[in-house]
Amino acid sequence: MKRQRLTPYLLLLPGLFPIVAFMSLVVGMAVSQSIGYFNFAGDDRFSLEFWEGMLSQNQFWRVFWYSARIAILSSLISVMLAYPVALWLRRPFPGSDLISAMIKAPLLVHGLVAAFLFVNFISFQGFLNVALVKLGLIDRPIRMQNDSYAIGVVILQVWKNMPLAFLVITGSVRAIGDDILDAARDLGAGSLARLRRVILPLTLRALQAALILIFIGAAGDWSFQVVAGPTNIQSMAQFMHRVQSDNAAHGWNEAAVVAVMLMALSLFGSLTLAGLMQLIVRRMGR
């Protein structure tokens, strides 16, 4: 009897233990390096100097808010694009399978490849420039690569993450029974009222999940920023990597501060966004 109760936990060990050990060690490493332990240069001692040094840097805060902005924009735009499409494809019709397959296609394209395709597309002699010139809209090619507003990065994020949002939202939209929507209609709810009072509340969890996933991915982005991002500012991940490799003496410690702040941004930023979404949906449902 006793052994039987223990069995599931023993079975959990091989899968769960590596995950828990790895994650706690890695996060623990980042946290302790940020406060002066596991020092590769000099003695281990508790110190808040890296935190003070980093948090007083203007550049750090520019990077922080830049990543936050990209994450908010990317997750909101992806979800806003995916939602109506998921609603449209709720009931199958001739061609709907093809469209969902097309929407999901970017999931199979590696981030770096996506970044390359995009840069190649908008580059000085990429398709877009050539097309615009041939159409007579512009006289000669314009420089669109690495634009300083990070429009390119957001486009890439949306391109890559909209399918993810679509996948998450589609599941919950399809789970709403026809009867439920018919009932709402029968009781006098027009299409807007059905959206506000039935569909949105019932898909709120999926909306939040999509927002959280995309926010975290975009906040920690490195590849898109490095390949297609503005050259005058860095993302949190890029900044962390640069600080770690450039600042020889205390690079690790300073990078650790950035890492902890990035984790905090991912966690609290995504949760705040999800909370706001809940508030809006509740308010609209009233």
Binding site: G15, L25, V26, V27, Q33, I216, W222, M240, L262
Partner: peptide
């Protein structure tokens, strides 16, 4: 708990895994 690796930013785990 098994899902935690999915929400840890990739470069944070990469860099501090290398530190480890």
């Amino acid at each position: 708990l098994t899902l935690v690796p999915l929400i840890l930013p990739g470069f944070v785990s990469a860099i501090f895994f290398s530190a480890l």
